[in-house]
Simulated assay, not measured.
Amino acid sequence: MSTLILSPRYSEDSRVMRAAAISAGWNVLRLSGWRVPEDDVIETVAFYGEP
């Protein structure tokens, strides 16, 4: 299954991306920090982060 990884920042854009991903049947992971946990193995991933 595809997974959208979001940065720890909450923004209007990230909220819209999260809702769209959930509607499309994707998993969503919002990071608690700026590093992706090493124990999370994800096959298909898209990352949305802000500059």
Rank of each mutant, 00 (worst) to 15 (best):
V36M: 06
W26P: 03
V45R: 03
W26M: 06
V28C: 01
S7L: 04
V45F: 00
N27E: 06
A24F: 03
W26D: 06
R9Q: 14
W34E: 14
D40K: 15
E12G: 06
E38Q: 11
Y48P: 00
I22G: 04
R15D: 12
V16Q: 07
D40M: 14
G33V: 14
F47G: 04
A24Y: 03
Y10Q: 13
L29D: 03
V41F: 09
I5C: 01
A46N: 02
W34S: 14
L6E: 01
L6C: 03
P37R: 00
D40W: 12
S2M: 13
D40H: 15
S2N: 11
P51R: 09
L4F: 00
S7T: 04
S14T: 15
D40G: 10
D39Q: 11
E38G: 13
Y48D: 03
V36W: 01
A46S: 05
W26A: 07
A21S: 15
V28R: 01
I22N: 07
S32E: 13
R15K: 12
D39S: 14
D13H: 11
S32V: 08
G49E: 05
E38N: 14
T3I: 02
D39I: 10
V16H: 07
D40E: 14
V28K: 01
Y48S: 04
S2Y: 06
I22K: 13
I42A: 03
G25D: 04
R18N: 10
V36E: 02
E38L: 11
N27G: 09
A21T: 10
R35L: 06
P51H: 09
L4Y: 00
E50V: 13
E43G: 01
V16Y: 12
F47L: 10
W34N: 15
M17A: 15
S11C: 08
Y10V: 15
V41Q: 08
S11G: 07
S11N: 05
R30S: 04
M1A: 11
T3F: 01
I22D: 05
V28Q: 01
G49T: 09
Y48F: 06
M1T: 07
Y48M: 03
A20K: 08
R30V: 03
D13V: 07
A20G: 10
A46F: 05
R18M: 14
Y48Q: 04
W26N: 03
L31T: 05
P37L: 00
I22E: 15
R9A: 08
L29Q: 07
A19S: 14
I5S: 00
R15G: 11
M17F: 14
V16K: 12
D39V: 15
I22R: 10
I5Q: 00
N27S: 15
F47N: 04
Y10H: 08
